[in-house]
């Protein structure tokens, strides 16, 4: 089948195939995807934190972070929470199904600036997805970084993603602090909301970068917590999510002030967005 496609059309997705589907939680699924164009797949390069627009033709397009690291390029991995029309449709996909993909988009993490420093990941629920890509990238380049601590919380043990690789994270040199909102039978890790655990852990802001992602309410209280611990605005990095359409800085939807989350983000430091917190 020949495609009638023009060159250099940023709206035109590449065709891709779902290779594997993993159930993370009751409403989060992970897709492992490869581009159909083998050469393009082999040459595909991206920064941790960059995103892709997944197309299910007939339903639409939606944005997800590429949560596999650039150091592992057999496939591109996306984790999708079922919340709306398009994610519902993505959850129906099986291995072998064809989708469209526009990637990589967005800025990604400036991990070069984090080299030699201590790292604090703070993730809540599906918000762990964008942190995973950087976390694995750092594990794969472990010598470049100091202490790596990750606080990861979810409502219940059943709502934690990537449980199957927690051991790999730990053996890779990550101090992993897991928490759930309330007591559950058999749960041996921490209990409490992420901001509470943060203040209990009280990591020193000295030479440390905090990378935060989670639901807006968690971000809000984590920001308070980090400021209390003495983190400077530029030491706090978050990756934002907004409703996106074009993904290429044109359609005008995903702005926070004059910044477009799709091209100027999704990764921002707190200094860049703090005047606009009403619109997060």
């Amino acid at each position: 089948m020949t495609d009638n496609k023009s060159l250099n059309n940023p709206y035109l997705p590449d065709l891709a195939t779902v290779q594997e589907v993993i159930d993370e939680t009751a409403n989060i699924r992970t897709l492992r995807v490869t581009l159909d164009d083998k050469e393009k797949m082999a040459a595909f390069n991206f920064r941790p934190g960059q995103v892709g627009q997944i197309s299910v033709f007939g339903t639409g397009e939606s944005t997800f972070v590429i949560n596999s690291p650039p150091t592992r390029r057999d496939y591109l991995q996306f984790s999708v929470m079922r919340v709306g029309e398009i994610t519902q449709r993505i959850h129906q996909l099986n291995a072998g199904d064809r989708i469209g993909l526009r990637a990589p988009l967005g800025n990604g993490f400036q991990y070069e600036d984090m080299k030699g420093r201590d790292i604090l990941f703070i993730g809540g629920g599906i918000g762990m997805a964008p942190l995973r890509t950087l976390l694995l990238h750092m594990i794969d380049n472990r010598a470049d970084y100091g202490d790596i601590t990750a606080i990861y919380g979810a409502r219940s043990p059943k709502d934690l993603c990537y449980t199957y690789e927690f051991e790999e994270w730990k053996t890779g040199g990550v101090n992993l602090v897991l928490t759930v909102d309330s007591e559950f039978p058999g749960w041996k890790e921490r209990v409490g909301f992420v901001p509470t655990i943060l203040s209990q852990e009280a990591p020193s802001p000295l030479n440390r970068i905090a990378i935060v992602c989670g639901p807006p309410i968690m971000i809000k209280f984590v920001l308070f917590g980090l400021k209390e611990l003495g983190f400077e605005d530029r030491q706090i990095i978050t990756t934002l999510e907004k409703r996106m359409k074009c993904g290429i800085g044109i359609c005008g939807r995903c702005n926070v002030g004059s910044k477009y989350v799709c091209v100027d983000g999704p990764v921002f430091n707190y200094e860049q967005i703090k005047g606009m917190c009403q619109e997060l």
Partner: peptide, 30 residues
């Protein structure tokens, strides 16, 4: 603008159409 898929079963089109930032749905997330 917004971008939507308008489908007629096995075929369809991806449309870009005017949207309005005055609409509640413009920034409503799933």
């Amino acid at each position: 603008f917004t971008i939507t898929d308008e489908s007629d079963n096995l075929r369809g089109e991806r449309l870009r159409s005017w949207d309005s930032c005055m609409f509640y749905h413009y920034t409503l997330e799933a």
